[in-house]
C-alpha cells in the first residue's frame, strides 16, 4: 500500500516535470520563437543591438545564443527555483504578478465550485425524492437549460444587466480603485462586491450538471435493497436520508469536485477577461496577446500544477472517504 503512495507521489513530480518540458517546447513552437518579439521590443526601447542578448539573458535567465539543451537546463533549473523571469509587457518579476493574481482566482473558483455543488446536490436530492413529480420534471428541464448556457453568456448578460444597465455592481476589477489594498472592512466589502458577478456566472451554468448527477445517483441509491432493508429495520427517515441516501449518492461526486476545481481554473481565462478580473486567467490571456512568454508560461505551469495536485489529492483521499474504493483502484491491477 505504501508502495502505491510513493509511486503516486513520484508520478506527480514526473508529470510536473513533463509539463514544464512541454511549456519549454511550446514557446519555441510559437510564431517567431520566444525572443524575436522581445528583441524587437528592446530595440524599440533604444537598447543597443549589441546589448540586447545580454539583456534577454538577464531577464529570462536564458542565453538566447546557447545551444537548445543548455537553454533547456537553464529554464528548468530556474523554474525549479520558482524563478520565472521578468514579464516583458509588465516589466515586473513574473513570480510577483502570479502571487498577486492567484488569491483572486482561487477565491472565485473555490467559492463558485462549492456553491455549484451545494445547489446541485440540494436540488438533485429534492428531485430524486419527488421523482416523477411536476417539480422534478420542471427542474430536470431547468437543469438541462442551465447546462446549455455557457458561463460566458451568463457573464455577458449579467454584466450587461446588473453592471451596465442597472449599475448595481461594478463592471470591472477585483477591488475599487479608491480602496487601499490592506485587510480592512472596506477592502473586503469591495472585493466581495467585485466578485459577485464572476462567481454568479461561474456558478449558475454548473448547477444543472451537478443537480442531474446528484439526482441520478440518489435515484440509483434509493433503488438499492439496503435502503429498503434499512426502512424495514425501523430506522428513522432522517437517518436513512442522510446516512444512507445522501452519503452514498454524494461520495462518488467527491472526485468530480476536486477535478473540477482544477479544470475550472483554466476556464478563468475567459471568465476573468470578461470582468477584467485580474487573476491568473486574466494575466494568462494578457500575456498571450502581448507575446509575453515568461508570464504566459508561468501561468500555464501554475494552472497545470493546480490541476495535477487536485487529481493527486482526489486519488489519495478518495479511498479514505469512500470505503468501497481501495487505494490504487482496479485500473492498476493489470
Amino acid at each position: 500500500m505504501s508502495n502505491y503512495y510513493v509511486r503516486r507521489t513520484a508520478r506527480v513530480f514526473a508529470t510536473i516535470f513533463a509539463v514544464a518540458t512541454l511549456t519549454f517546447g511550446l514557446i519555441r513552437l510559437l510564431p517567431g520563437g520566444p525572443f524575436t518579439q522581445l528583441r524587437a521590443q528592446l530595440l524599440r526601447q533604444g537598447v543597443p543591438a549589441s546589448e540586447v542578448d545580454a539583456r534577454i539573458a538577464n531577464l529570462q535567465n536564458i542565453n538566447p545564443n546557447a545551444p537548445l539543451w543548455q537553454q533547456y537546463l537553464d529554464y528548468m533549473s530556474s523554474v525549479a527555483q520558482g524563478n520565472f523571469g521578468e514579464s516583458i509587457s509588465l516589466g515586473e518579476p513574473v513570480a510577483l504578478i502570479i502571487a498577486e493574481a492567484v488569491p483572486w482566482t482561487v477565491f472565485v473558483v473555490l467559492v463558485s465550485t462549492i456553491l455549484m455543488f451545494a445547489f446541485g446536490i440540494f436540488l438533485g436530492s429534492l428531485q430524486a425524492y419527488w421523482e416523477g413529480s411536476r417539480f422534478d420534471k420542471a427542474f430536470s428541464g431547468l437543469s438541462i437549460a442551465l447546462m446549455s448556457i455557457p458561463f460566458y453568456v451568463v457573464a455577458v448578460i449579467s454584466l450587461y444587466v446588473f453592471a451596465y444597465q442597472w449599475g448595481w455592481l461594478p463592471t470591472a476589477g477585483t477591488v475599487g480603485a479608491s480602496v487601499e489594498k490592506e485587510l480592512s472592512i472596506p477592502f473586503l466589502l469591495s472585493a466581495l462586491e467585485h466578485s459577485i458577478l464572476p462567481i454568479f456566472s461561474y456558478t449558475l451554468g454548473g448547477i444543472g450538471g451537478q443537480a442531474l448527477a446528484m439526482r441520478g445517483n440518489s435515484i440509483q441509491v434509493l433503488g438499492n435493497d439496503y435502503v429498503r432493508v434499512a426502512r424495514l429495520r425501523g430506522l428513522a427517515d432522517r437517518r436513512i436520508a442522510t446516512r444512507y441516501v445522501a452519503r452514498n449518492a454524494i461520495l462518488p461526486m467527491y472526485t468530480g469536485f476536486l477535478l473540477l476545481l482544477g479544470f475550472r481554473l483554466s476556464g478563468t481565462v475567459i471568465l476573468e477577461q470578461i470582468f477584467s478580473y485580474t487573476g491568473l486567467g486574466y494575466y494568462m490571456f494578457a500575456a498571450l496577446k502581448a507575446n509575453d512568454y515568461p508570464l504566459m508560461m508561468a501561468t500555464f505551469l501554475v494552472i497545470t500544477v493546480a490541476l495535477i495536485v487536485g487529481v493527486y489529492i482526489a486519488d489519495l483521499t478518495y479511498s479514505k472517504i469512500d470505503p468501497r474504493i481501495s487505494a490504487g483502484g482496479s485500473d492498476e491491477a493489470y
Binding site: M147, M253, T255
Partner: peptide, 28 residues
C-alpha cells in the same frame, strides 16, 4: 445501466467512473 437499474433493482458500481467523466465535461 445506472439509470436503467432502477427498474432492474440491481446496481453496478460504475458510479465513480461516470461521475469523473461528467465532471470533466462541465468545464465550460
Amino acid at each position: 445501466p445506472r439509470v436503467r437499474t432502477r427498474l432492474a433493482g440491481e446496481s453496478e458500481s460504475t458510479a465513480a467512473v461516470d461521475e469523473k467523466d461528467t465532471g470533466m465535461t462541465e468545464v465550460l
